[in-house]
Amino acid sequence: MTVRAGARPPRLRPGDRVAVVAPSGPVAPERLDAGLDILRGWDLDPVLAPHVRTGHPELAYLAAPDECRARDLQDAWCDPEVAAVFAARGGYGAQRMVDLLDWAAVRVARPKPLVGFSDVTVVHEAFALRAGVATLHGPAVAGEVFLKDEPTRDQLRRTLFTPEDPAVTTLAPGTARTLVPGRAHGVTFGGCLALLASEAGTPDARRDAAGGLLLLEDVGEQPYAVDRALTQLLRSGTLAGVAGVVLGSWARCGPYDRIRAVLVDRLGGLGVPVVEEFGFGHGDSALTVPLGVPATLDADAGTLTFDVPPLC
């Protein structure tokens, strides 16, 4: 099952209405309000999905019951007046609701930018495999990095409004380092390692990664847990045929030299280029990285260059 490029959504324009949804965990009200103000400062018209602030009556780690979160995401995606969909945060819960979406309705709706990371990895993978849509691995509207880090906000804004900007079509974070040298071409996919590993055996599990450039990052996982997740992907065949690997942040995962040893041990034998410290994920600053778009990875130069802009 070759990793295929997705349909690229249209770019945003000033005045566009955009929806903010909470497909996973509950959202801190003050952070949400601050994130909405930032979107308004971009001359966007953000609207909250109905259940973003409601909470779950019994399971406090969910933003709302599964059916409500699924309905919010589906309605936002299918609304012709909505130009983009932003996740308010990650957390946990996307796996519980993704099968409740009406995928036939999702597929016939006009594609639009879908932005999120962390637990939203599940949504990215589902939209790629079930709807054939390119999405954006980017910061959450109510996330700390989006609220506090100007470079993070600027990169997302450029991606959404001026996707042909060289700073969007070629990602070259100064922190990037070569783990395994070489160049590779493929279609970007991936996200949070723990979520990709936990998707094994589900309808959205990839059987292989042929022709894909895999993005991996995580937060709060000790080295042995990173090893376990990578081993799951290797044993399940998910990494078979992968063209290259792009590694992001490993915040609160223990000393980085220990994490790096695991990454070398588990990924070094793939025989493909691997670049580390690429600046996306749960770090203090976070690049927006398009998913489902063909690109060239140069692990020696520390660059990821897209064949086309991520949005039309």
Rank of each mutant, 00 (worst) to 15 (best):
F278Q: 14
P273N: 04
D284M: 09
V289N: 12
R235M: 07
A22M: 03
G190S: 09
R252A: 15
A225P: 10
V168I: 02
R235I: 03
P181F: 02
V246M: 00
V108F: 03
A142E: 06
L73A: 14
P255S: 13
P26Y: 01
G132Q: 01
E81Y: 08
F306C: 11
V122L: 06
G268N: 10
T178C: 14
A83R: 13
V242L: 00
D208N: 14
P29V: 09
P80H: 03
V187H: 09
V115N: 06
P9S: 15
T159K: 03
V115T: 01
R153I: 00
V52H: 06
V122I: 12
R4C: 06
A134W: 02
A109F: 11
S198R: 13
G212D: 04
I38T: 15
D154N: 13
A301V: 01
A22C: 10
G220F: 01
L100M: 12
W42F: 02
V18L: 05
A34H: 02
P57W: 04
T152Y: 08
G186I: 04
V108L: 13
G268H: 05
A167K: 14
D16T: 07
G292E: 07
P50R: 02
G279L: 02
V47L: 11
E30I: 06
E58V: 07
W77C: 13
W103N: 13
V272D: 10
E277C: 12
A197W: 04
V275T: 15
G93Q: 07
G241S: 06
F280P: 11
G237I: 04
A172V: 06
